[in-house]
């Protein structure tokens, strides 16, 4: 079975003192897929990724990365995994070229010089290769970091919030790159806060307080939630929020895209809550598929 999964871990647990940061997480990512790793801040995404690439010892649990045992073969995992940290972690006082050359040498990349040259050319950074990495903009740092992670031709990429603080255009380019890499058979696990990025993944897992509470395709996750969402549209709709939140049967009200999302599990109760609004006649009300964001906020509120 292990052969077909790039990541196959069970019961992964990590405690920091009294706090259980990651609580019996099972993830099995088939080779070649792009998986999104979602969850609020502090939910355990970074800790999970760090355990997968051997930066943290798991207190409990077992499994394999690329067929290598998490506990006994951390060196093999390190050699074959590309890990991109949340915060830019290349050497700001080294130039672009020097950073790449360092990576090539540490991983003992065959024909490293050529790989570095090719990478710089592919990034279009030939004329800036002697520039210090610290002088690059956020978007360029991110591109450099991804290129550096790919230098040793890893078979699995672990990306920890790679697009935080990056502008939309750079984000789009970044995802095109991810999909192109996926085409070549590389498996990707990418953590993110962005819903649109989640939708670019083959499958997503959602972690909350250290526990994986949802997994599947975006459609599956939405369907599993059993959430019903009504959209209320019209001028001044924002003023309805306070009243609707108090209404029985309404679990969650959110305003985005200039419309109101009113969600709950009980259709009849939702209809009753919305009846007074409907009576005003000023707003258009219709049922719609809940967005991923609705589902996640719902999951989060349910947990609290």
């Amino acid at each position: 079975m292990t052969d077909s999964y790039a990541i196959d871990v069970h019961g992964l647990t990590k405690r920091f003192g009294q706090k259980t940061a990651v609580d019996h997480v099972d993830i099995a990512v088939p080779k070649g897929e792009v998986w999104g790793f979602l969850g609020p801040n502090g939910s355990g995404k970074t800790t999970t990724i760090r355990m997968l690439c051997g930066l943290l010892h798991a207190d409990e649990g077992e499994g394999t990365c690329l067929g290598y045992d998490l506990r006994s073969q951390p060196d093999d995992i390190k050699r074959n995994v590309g890990y991109m940290t949340q915060r830019f972690s290349f050497w700001e006082d080294l130039s672009i070229r020097e950073n790449l050359e360092f990576v090539a040498r540490v991983y003992e990349v065959p024909d490293g010089g050529m790989r570095v040259k090719d990478t710089i050319a592919r990034l279009g950074l030939e004329h800036r290769q002697t520039q210090l990495a610290g002088e690059l903009s956020g978007g360029w740092k991110q591109r450099l970091a991804l290129a550096a992670c790919m230098l040793h031709s890893p078979k699995l990429l672990l990306l920890d919030e790679p697009t935080s603080g990056v502008d939309p255009e750079a984000r789009r380019d970044f995802w095109e790159e991810i999909h192109a890499l996926s085409e070549t058979g590389i498996t990707v696990l990418v953590s993110t806060h962005y819903m649109d990025e989640a939708e670019r993944c083959d499958r997503i897992v959602y972690i909350l307080n250290g526990r994986l509470i949802a997994r599947g395709t975006v459609q599956e996750v939405i369907a599993q939630s059993g959430l019903i969402t009504f959209i209320v549209e019209g001028e001044g709709v924002r003023r309805l929020i306070a009243a609707l939140r108090k209404a029985p049967g309404v679990e969650y009200v959110a305003f985005f895209g200039a419309v109101l999302h009113v969600s709950g599990h009980d259709r009849a109760a939702l209809e009753r809550a919305l009846a007074p609004v409907r009576a005003q006649g000023a707003f258009r009300i219709f049922e719609a598929q809940p967005s991923l964001e609705d589902v996640f906020i719902h999951l989060q509120e349910q947990a609290e």
């Binding site: 930066l55 972690s89 050497w91």
Partner: peptide, 13 residues
């Protein structure tokens, strides 16, 4: 302090 240790440790050195 600069956060590069995380990167270094993820490498096979």
């Amino acid at each position: 302090e600069r956060g590069t240790l995380e990167n270094l440790l993820a490498m096979p050195a």
